[in-house]
């Protein structure tokens, strides 16, 4: 029988270290990937993910028994990732939001069919994956966060609203806009994707 996150957190609050270790095992890869998709930098993603679990450990007393653990965890991860992006942005990151907004409806392209086979196809698939990873880092974080939570983590709109502390309607509009921006950024990163019938 799988012990719930809430039960593990309650046990950890009472001093059960193994409960924390089980939560760590359960979520470490997911948090690392979430932060990595937010930042696009593996080393920093590891550091931020580490910070997330240290914060959970040191602030376990703030967890309210009976509430949902995962949104709390992702909220901490999201805040730390956003802070890191803002910190970088102050120095060197330039948002493409403005430039992308003007022409995101002007491009269309075809993405690879997931069932494509053959050496060339594999290369193109790899290239498309790399391009998407890079394109993700080009869209503003306020659109990136809901996209990652929806597409990669599979959260519904209410959960994303809870994690990012924004209204459900804002989640909806940001996902719509984020997808359009991602499409444009993808084309900019790899113009061949526009015409390559992948």
């Amino acid at each position: 029988m799988i012990t719930s996150d809430d039960e593990l957190m309650c046990r950890f609050q009472k001093g059960d270290e193994t409960a924390f270790r089980r939560l760590l095992e359960r979520y470490q890869d997911r948090i690392i990937n979430f932060v990595f998709r937010m930042l696009g930098d593996e080393d920093t993603a590891m550091d931020i993910a580490q910070e997330v679990f240290v914060k959970i450990y040191l602030n376990a007393g703030r967890y309210l028994p009976g509430s949902r653990f995962a949104p709390w965890l992702y909220r901490i991860a999201s805040n730390l990732a956003i802070n890191e992006i803002r910190r970088r942005k102050r120095w060197r990151f330039i948002s493409i939001d403005e430039s992308a907004s003007s022409d995101d409806r002007n491009y269309s392209f075809e993405l690879a069919d997931e069932s494509a086979t053959g050496a060339d196809e594999v290369l193109l698939q790899k290239e498309a994956s790399d391009s998407i990873e890079k394109a993700m880092t080009k869209i503003p974080v306020k659109y990136r966060a809901p996209l990652v939570l929806r597409e990669i983590e599979g959260y519904d709109y209410d959960e994303i609203s809870q994690i990012l502390n924004i209204p459900r309607g804002t989640v909806k509009s940001r996902l719509n806009r984020g997808r359009a921006l991602l499409k444009t950024a993808l084309y900019r990163v790899n113009p061949a994707l526009k015409t390559a019938a992948l």
């Binding site: 990937n33 597409e151 993808l186």
Partner: peptide, 12 residues
């Protein structure tokens, strides 16, 4: 397809 591509990115 973009969503599928995102979900299928190689995980860390």
């Amino acid at each position: 397809k973009i969503g599928a591509r995102l979900r299928n990115l190689p995980p860390l």
